[in-house]
Design a protein around this nucleic acid. Sequence first.
DNA 1: ACCCCTGTTCGGCG
DNA 2: CCGCCGAACAGGGG
Length: 264
Amino acid sequence: MPELAEVEFYRRQWDPGLGQKIMRVQIHPRKRIFRGSNPRAFVRELTGSCFLRSFAWGKQMLFEFSGGNWIGIHLGMTGTLRIEPPNFRPEKHDHLVLHQARRSLVFRDARLFGRVRFHRGQSAPPWWRAGGPDIASDTFDRKFLDAFLRRHGRAPVKSVLLLQSGFAGIGNWMADEILWRAKIPPLTAAGALTAAQGTRLFRETRFVASESLRIIGPNFSDPPRDWLIHQKWKRDGVCPKHHTPLRKAIIGGRTTAWCPRCQK
DNA sequence: ACCCCTGTTCGGCG
DNA sequence: CCGCCGAACAGGGG
């Protein structure tokens, strides 16, 4: 489910708990969601600490607590964050619950493709910001984009849009939205894009990232009706521009929809 | 019952 | 060694 904008939305869900103490922590410690961490030891440290700040970066989130305690969360395909009452009892897929005096902060993930990582230290963990540059930042510029496309020049551009080392936070629906707006066929080799296509890819990547953050981030509002996302999952989806039937194929292992008239 | 899935990682292969 | 691709992970929904 979650890409850049949805991740930002879920990060904000825990905001009501900022500045408040963690009274009790409940986990399902054996779940693979905690792979690579020692959750039981961390729970001892976290209990009694204060929830200080949170950050989002691509599809990654980082939550900072007093005493040098940090939690990194990746939502995978089906992860969500939400608030529940203080005495909330976790259900089957609620793998991490931070109880505060007035509410509980809950992480749920049915499919367990997500990941929760713990870190102790004075600064953010080394794995934080290990991915590509923030698309909104100056580091994500034409030079970076062109070099990245060249480096993965033989792969279909659709597959390259899904690489988090270059397009942090872009997932399947945003990738198709970007390529549709940039008028680029998804099977085009990344190294074979024309200069004009490169220019449009850069512009529309920035546009889709910033617009979806603005629309979805605060309250999960729907993107405008003329965005491709509303058509791409339909069996008989059509191009929002002129109602040409969309084409579908598996590219880079993922369902891809595009308009054969706009994107050629 | 069967097929689908907004993600990442790993092993095989060229 | 690099990079590409398919499979695997696991469960719910159509």
